[in-house]
Every structure is written in C-alpha cells, then in structure tokens.
Design a binder for these strands. Structure first.
Length: 919
RNA sequence: GGGCAAUUGGCGCAGUUGGUUAGCGCGCUUCCUUGACAUGGAAGAGGUCACAGGUUCGAAUCCUGUAUUGCCCACCA
C-alpha cells in the first residue's frame, strides 16, 4: 500500500481553488463526450459502455452577439444538472451546444460599429460587409463559451454548432426548397410589419404591442358635387394622419343611415387634391368614431383587405426608412412624424380639422430596435402554417411531447389554432440568403444552388439573366431546424440516427411561439421521411417529434419585478456572481429559487444561501474525515478483510469505486436507532429526489437535498456520531452518497470533497460514478418515528433550558416521565444521546404515575400526550417564577383547547361515522 | 375584448391528490466562539393563508363570485 500525503481541508470552502482544476480535469477526461454505439469508447477510465441509451438535450443556442444573463445562467444550469444526472444514471448523455447567428441583432451591432467609422453597409457592399460580420462573430463567440464554462456547464464541446456553419447553412436552404416544392412556401405582396430602423420586415412574433398615449384626429374630407341637403364634408378619424396621403377611399357601414345615400359619391382628399370614392364595407363599426374610415391599403392590414374586396389601388407613400416618398406630394422626403405635424398644421389652416382628442391605443414596436413598426406593403416570402401546425398541435395534445408545467399547453393550443402565415424574408445581409432567382420579367426559380436554379429556368424555357433574391431568411427559420440540423440533416447521419429525437428541451416560456412550436413543426415535417438506424421507416410519431419533454422555467426578474435585460442593465453578470459566491453556490441558488413556471425575483444576496450550503457541506466532510482518522487510530486491530477497509483508508491509490458494485448508501445493516433513522432518511431523500427530477420539479429536488443534508445529516446525525463513534463508518458512507446525490447540482465542491473523502485518483470522476439509488428496504418508518420522538424530547429539554436562561455550560437535571413501556425503554436506550444533546447532568427516566411536581421547583414540557419532561429549577426569583407560571398556564390552555376540539370531534357522530378510521 | 397565473408572518417563497399544532430562506430578539462549520449552533417572536359566499365531519387546499397584481394573445379607424 503506497502512502500519499493526507489532504488537509481548509477551514472554509474556497471555490476559486477547485473550479478551474476540476473543469480542466473533466474536459481532459472526456467526461462531456457522448459516443454512438459504433464508436469505440475513448474515455480514459474505460468505463463507458457502448450500448447505453442516449439522453439528449439541445442547448437553446444563445445569440453570438450576446452576453449571458441570469436567465441563461438558470437555463444552462438546469440543462447541465439533467445531463450530469442522466450520465450518472448510466445514459449516454449528450448536451449539444451552439450559437445562433441572430440576424437582425448581429447585423445591427456591426452596422453601428460601421456608423462610428462613418460608413454604411452599402458603402462596403455585401461581401465586405459580411466579412466584417464574420470578424465580429469570431471575436465574440468565445465569450459565451467562457461564460458557460464558468457556470460549470459541460456540453460536448467537440460538437459545437453555429447556425451559419456550412452544413447547417445547407440544411436551411434544403428546408426552404423542400417547403417551396410542397407549396408551403410562397411569395406575395402583403402588409407586413416593417421595421424602419432595420429596414426589414418582421414576423408577427417580433412585434410587441404596448398601450401608447396618442391622439385621435378628426379630419374633414369635402364632398364633391354636394347637394343642398347634404353635408359639406365627411369626418374621418385617424391616429396616423400621415397615412392620409395614401388614402384611396372612405368606407362606411352599408347599414349606416347617416351615410347610406352618399355611398358611391366622391370626396376630395385634402392636401393631395385627389378624388376618392365613398364605399360600403361591413368592417366599419357604426358606433366607433364618426362611422367613416379612411382607407389606406398600403399602410394598414385591415384597409389592405378592404382594398382587395373593392379592387382599390394600393398607394404606398413611404420609403423603407419611413420617410414620405414621391407619392406624398409636397411632403415627400419628410420623416413620418415630421410629415404628421405638417399635415395637421396644413389642415388646420384649411379649416379641415374637426377636433383632436387624446387617445390611448395599442401600438406595435419592434422587439429588437424598440421603434414603432410601420404596417407596410411589400413583396415577401411566407410559410403556410396551417398544414404544419395541425400535426404539431396533435402530438402535444396526445402527450407525445409533454410540457412542464402542463398549463402551457393552453397557450400553445391557442396560438396553433389561430396561426397565421409566417413572414420569413428579411431585408438584411447577415443570414441565409433566400435561394430564389429571378428573371427579367417576374420569373421565379427556387433551387438549392445557382446552377440548380439555372437548370430549372432552362427547363422552363427562360434563357435570360438570373439574379438571386437579395434578402435573407428570418433567424428562426434556421433555429427551428436545430434538433436535427445540428446532427447533419438532411443527410441521414449516424449521429442523427443515434441522437434524434432528443429527450429534453429547457427554455423560457417567452419563446414558445418563436422557437418551441416551430421546432415541433419542423421536426415532424422533415424527420418523418428519414429512416431509423436499422433502416426501418419512422412510423411512430414518438420517433419523429424532436423531444419528449419541454421544461418551461421561470423568468428571472429583478427585485422590483422587471424582466432582466441588457437594455435595463438590471441583470447581474452571472460571472461576477460566480466569482463572488462560487459557481456551485450560484447554481444551487438558481435551482432552489426556480419554481416551475413561476417568475422569480432575484437579488444577488440570495446566493449567500448557496454559498453557505457549500461551506456547510465542506465542513461536514472535514469533520467526517477527522472522525474517520480518529476512529481508525483508536481501533486496535483494523479489519483488513472488511469492506470498510477502503473507505477507512483514504490513502489507497486504487480506485475504490467499481462500476455498479454499489449504488445505494451502504450494503450493511444498521444497528443503532440513529443509524436506522439516517439510513431511512437518506433513502427516502434519494427516492424523493429522483421522483422530483424525473417530474421536472427541480426546485423540489434541491430543497430535499438541502433539508436532508443540513438538518438531518449535519444537525442531528453528526451530533450523534460525536457520541457514538461506532457510527463513524456509516457517516462516511452516507456522506459519500450525499456527494453523488448532490453532484449534478453542485459539481465542483462535490467532486473535490469526493476525492478528499475516497482518495480516488483525479482521473476517476464522481460524475462517471453511479447516481445514488434508494433502497426502499432501508426506509424504516418505525425507526423514523422513534428517532423523531427522541428529537422531540431533546427539543423540549432545550426549550426548558432556554426558558430558564441556563447557558449551555450550566448542567441541568431532568426527569422524563413517559406513559407507556415502549417509550420508556426507547428513551432508555437513547439515554446517552438525550443526555448529551440537552446537556443534562442527570436524567431520570420514569414510567408516568408519580404526582405532579411542584412548579416552584420544576418547569415542564408536554411530549405530545406521550409523557412529560421536567427540569429542576435553580433558585428562582419571584418574578421569574411568575413568568414561568404564566408560560405554563398558556401552554396548558393551548393543549387543553386542542384536546377539547379533538374530544368534541370524537364525540360527534358525523365525524366518527364519516371520517376514515385512521384519522 | 379573450386566455393563463398569482394573492400565505417585515421581505422573498414552499405547501403534490382536502386531514391533528400552516413550513422554508432572509431579516428580527435572546443565548452560545462547547475540538466540522460564526458562511455556525440553540431557543424565540411574528400569519384569522386577499375578500365574500358555498361544498364537506373537516378547506390555505375544491366550487362560485369580487378585488388587486402580473403575463400572454387579439385589436376599431
């Protein structure tokens, strides 16, 4: 047996010392790598089996531009915890990492940078501009990786994927072409949400509606050829006066008596001096405003529809930057808001303003840029969503994909059943360029490559020049392929066959539409035709959907309830917290505070709880190791044959843990009451944690760990171990199990302590060990009840001491009177524990039957009907005696009240007859 | 307008299918530096569980309504 120097643990846990060391060791040891069955295991420990069931999580790819905020920290901690947990359960755990090119966000940042140099993207040209963006991407993407590492996250870094990687790029193009071939992608002139800042279209999901204080303007449009009994003008109401430049009609309700006679007549559009008709349409609400609506088909989605019904022209009066174009007459060139002011002033001068009222309505803003979006008429590409949404809704309704918490299914259903077509073209350069080529007179050819498009054109008899669509695709049009494009789709790769479908998707509920729903659609649409590993078709939906469980975690808010965001600057940098409190502390705190789907207010001080917990565990280990040494040296003849030997001996160089030899806390039977109790508690906890984790109640699991470790193990069991050294080895074994049980949540401190405790070599990792399993045979309700009674006695005795203001150093004398024999012998057998934990100088244990002891001499506490404990009082001042009397009287009253209520219940026939017997 | 949630001691939150005395963390009070830990230990104060009805032997828990707050969706010029 070789002897290595014993490791002394420092008095307090210093995370910085251990985190980097272990992260590097994990990586060097290939801990994060996942293998296919056909790959030879490359793990240095050789523990990897090749036929393990995979457990796959695809990381929601953060924006390359991004800095991780607390929400990311939470989400990635959740994923890492599940990955580590399943790896320990024996799965081939794959966490697929990557980043998203984030079209608008990234392009905006680079354009901003250019602007500081006095340049625009058009000055550079497409190619040079894209070079700049790539440069920018390269300098920024490392940062996210660094942050994830600092959080202890261990995805399979070898597989890191970027949505603009060549393979992924091709997958996006392939998806577009296939959907186009199926007629699910089309091009059309529609009113879309226009972002004047990005000068691009946005999808409906990228628009945020906010109540906005504005004005409702009432304008007079003069009636042409007015008869004597007719009004001089028609009054219309609008919130966006500048759009009047594009008015092509005024609509009234066909059943509105006020205007019926005027239908078909003409009005003179002021300022523009254009004749526009009065038309009738059901859409108009007689009650609202004046009952007359100006119709601007090019600048309002409803007006657009009306325009189509009435065959009206679509007059676009704005440039893409939301300045008025040449159609706007003398307002041409003005910004939309400047034009608005001028139009109002001009109408005022003409006496054509009836009134202007304050008005609050809901206005759309760009999610990214924050500016007001402009409904705008333009040619865009759309995905037909209904055919995709129907099966995607069904798999969730049928439970093939489960949402946690379940209620999100309502939101999902609502969106899926009211779904509208998805505008996927963006007028940007950074992204996947739309694979459509145009001929000189409106011909459109969609192909995988320019050659492909050329061939199609030739086949169609078009020989002229082709030019590719300038636009790129919505970022989410690439993200929705994430669960399979990361594994090489459209090729039917071995990775894809092994690791699709995934198991868990963890995300914040705010991207349920953007991403979750669309991934489900894409998974069903694109994976259903791809054969499985054995060549058989995917006939079961279970093999087609991209994941089985979706965990919607909470949104982290600041202490006054605001969503944490970069723009508000109210999110602490997770890395600062990690440095201040330790990674494990931050992880624990986030998981502890992360109830299922309930928003959480986060203040950085809450990390103290996690830090303290890590420190508690550290010191418990320190103590147990000290006790073990003590026990070992006191033992005259160590039993080398016994299975304790290696646990006893922390200097062994042989890895103690052999795969699957021991998954529970101990193989040995427990002897003392405390031993039985802690084993029962430990196994119950292990059982509960598995249950919580498997049901995605992750905060429950952390709470169970915390309570068991701190209260049961440290506060009670270790105190008992101080009194009964024969429990030392069990304490070691339980602790070893605790470390394994806690490891997925707090990987660093548990790894460090596990090695200190077991003496395992650095290359043997706790994360490769088996997760603790509960042995239900060790759950012992009787032992738990018995030990709880002992705890109750001790607590009662401590209370007596505290009330009598006895300092701990002063000994006390107790008399314990118990009603039945079993309690009597129970407490006698636990006499030592009771005496020492309540610092009794003397403890008399009696069978109840003696008379009441004088309350001048004794203070007492009741033991839930099973007996009473008395403490002999020292000299008591009259004042103190009175106080004590009062307290006892109060206590007596409370108990008798409770007793009375119980009595009355029991004498109530209703209760006795209806309540179940055990009550 | 439609939908989803929340309302529990000073603050932040648990409380799973209804069942004896409603828990936890922080904060507060008192005592304790006793050989794991003061990032600790012991004890304590503090809640008629938003409100009003109802179901039940029994309600924080189930039902109805009201109020307040938050979020999502839709949107009338």
């Amino acid at each position: 047996m070789s002897v290595t120097p014993k490791k002394e643990l420092a008095k307090a846990y210093a995370p910085q010392d251990v985190e980097k060391k272990w992260y590097d060791t994990w990586e060097a040891g290939g801990l994060f790598y996942a293998y296919r069955p056909d790959e030879s295991p490359q793990d240095p420990t050789g523990r990897r089996a090749v036929d393990k069931a995979p457990f796959v999580v695809c990381m929601p790819p953060p924006n390359v531009t991004g800095i991780l905020h607390m929400g990311h920290a939470l989400n990635n901690t959740i994923q890492d915890t599940y990955i580590r947990y399943h790896r320990m359960l024996g799965h081939e755990a794959l966490w697929m990492p990557g980043t998203d090119h984030a079209g608008i966000a990234t392009q905006t940042k680079v354009e901003k940078q250019l602007k500081e140099e006095g340049l625009s993207r058009r000055d550079l040209g497409r190619e040079k501009f894209l070079d700049r963006v790539w440069q920018w991407k390269h300098t920024h993407s490392d940062f996210i990786e660094k942050q994830l590492r600092a959080l202890g996250c261990g995805p399979d870094w070898r597989r890191f994927c970027f949505t603009m990687d060549e393979g992924y790029y091709n997958a996006v193009i392939e998806a577009f072409v296939r959907l186009h071939e199926k007629g699910l992608i089309y091009r059309g002139k529609r009113i879309i949400n226009w972002s004047p800042l990005a000068q691009s279209a946005l999808s409906d999901e990228e628009v945020i509606y906010k109540e906005t204080q504005g004005k409702l303007h009432f304008f007079r449009y003069p009636l042409i050829d007015r008869k004597a009994d007719e009004p001089e003008y028609i009054v219309i109401a609008t919130t966006r006066p500048e759009t009047m430049l594009g008015d092509v009609a005024v609509a009234v309700n066909p059943f509105d008596e006020r205007y019926q006679k005027l239908i078909g007549r003409k009005l003179m559009l002021p300022l523009m001096n254009r004749e526009i008709p009065i038309i009738a349409d059901d859409y108009v609400d007689k009650e609202f405003g004046t009952g007359c609506v100006k119709i601007t088909p090019a600048h309002d989605p409803n007006d657009f529809e009306i325009g189509l019904r009435h065959n009206l022209p679509q007059l676009n009066v704005m440039y893409p930057d939301a300045t008025i174009n040449e159609q706007g007459g003398k307002y041409s060139g003005l910004d939309r808001y400047v034009a608005r002011k001028k139009i109002i002033a001009d109408l005022e001068e003409l006496g054509l303003i009836e009134k202007i009222e304050d008005y609050t309505n809901s206005v759309g803003y760009s999610e990214r840029g924050g500016e007001m979006i402009e409904p705008y008429l333009s040619d865009q590409w759309f995905v037909k969503m209904k055919p995709l949404a129907e099966p995607a809704l069904k798999v969730v309704e049928d439970g093939l994909i489960q949402f946690h918490p379940e209620r999100w299914i309502n939101t999902y259903r609502h969106w899926m059943t009211n779904i509208r077509d998805w505008c996927i073209s963006r007028q940007l350069w950074w992204g996947h360029r739309i694979p459509a080529w145009y001929g000189g007179s409106g011909e459109v050819f969609v192909g995988r490559t320019a050659e492909d498009a050329r061939a199609k054109a030739d086949a169609a008899g078009y020989t002229g020049h082709l030019h590719q669509d300038e636009d790129v695709l919505d970022t989410w049009f690439s993200s929705w392929l994430w669960p399979f494009a990361t594994f090489g789709w459209p090729e039917n790769t071995k990775d894809l066959q092994t690791f699709y479908p995934g198991n868990l998707l963890s995300t914040a509920p705010d991207i349920i539409f953007f991403w979750v729903a669309r991934m489900i659609m894409a998974g069903i649409e694109f994976m259903k035709d791809l054969p499985k590993a054995d060549g058989s078709p995917r006939t079961s939906m279970e093999d087609i959907v991209p994941f089985k469980h979706v965990y919607f975690h909470n949104i982290i808010r600041d202490q006054i309830g605001r969503k944490m965001s970069k723009s508000l600057g109210n999110s602490p940098d997770p890395i600062d917290l990690v440095q201040k409190y330790g990674t494990d502390a931050v992880r624990f705190t986030l998981l502890y505070l992360a109830p299922l789907g309930q928003d959480v207010r986060f203040g950085e001080e809450s990390c103290e709880q996690g830090r303290n917990f890590a420190n508690k565990l550290w010191n418990a280990t320190r103590f147990v190791m000290m006790k073990r040494d003590e026990y070992q040296s006191n033992k005259s003849e160590p039993t080398f044959e016994s299975e304790d030997t290696e646990l006893l001996n922390s200097t062994s160089n042989e890895p103690r843990i052999q795969s699957n030899t021991k998954t529970g806390f101990t193989a040995k039977p427990a002897t003392t009451l405390a031993d039985k109790w802690i084993l029962s508690r430990a196994n119950k906890t292990a059982f509960g944690i598995k249950e919580s984790l498997d049901n995605y109640l992750i905060n429950d699991a952390t709470k169970k760990l915390y309570d068991f470790i701190w209260k049961d193990y440290c506060d009670w069991y270790l105190e008992v171990v101080k009194l009964q050294p024969e429990s030392t080895l069990l304490a070691v074994e339980i602790l070893e199990g605790i470390l394994r049980m806690l490891h997925p949540v707090m990987p660093f401190v548990t790894e460090e302590l596990w090695h200190a405790l077991t003496g395992n070599e650095e290359s043997v990792l706790i994360g490769q060990d088996d997760y603790i399993t509960s042995d239900e045979g060790k759950i012992d309700p009787e032992a738990e009840a018995d030990f709880e009674f002992i705890q109750k006695i001790i607590e009662a005795a401590r209370l007596l001491r505290a009330n009598a203001k006895l300092t701990p150093s002063k000994p006390a004398k107790f008399i314990l009177r118990l009603k039945n024999d079993s309690d009597h012998s129970l407490s006698k057998s636990a006499r030592l524990i009771i005496e020492r934990l309540c610092r009794a100088e003397a403890l008399a244990i009696e069978v109840d039957g003696g008379g009441e002891l004088s309350s001048n001499e004794y203070s007492s506490e009741l033991l839930s009907g099973r007996g009473q404990i008395f403490m002999k009082l020292e000299v008591l001042s009259a004042e103190e005696a009175a106080k004590e009397q009062a307290r006892i009287a109060k206590e007596r009253e409370r108990v008798s009240k409770q007793y009375q209520s119980l009595l009355s219940k029991l004498s109530d026939d209703n209760f006795v007859s209806r309540a179940p017997a055990h009550i």
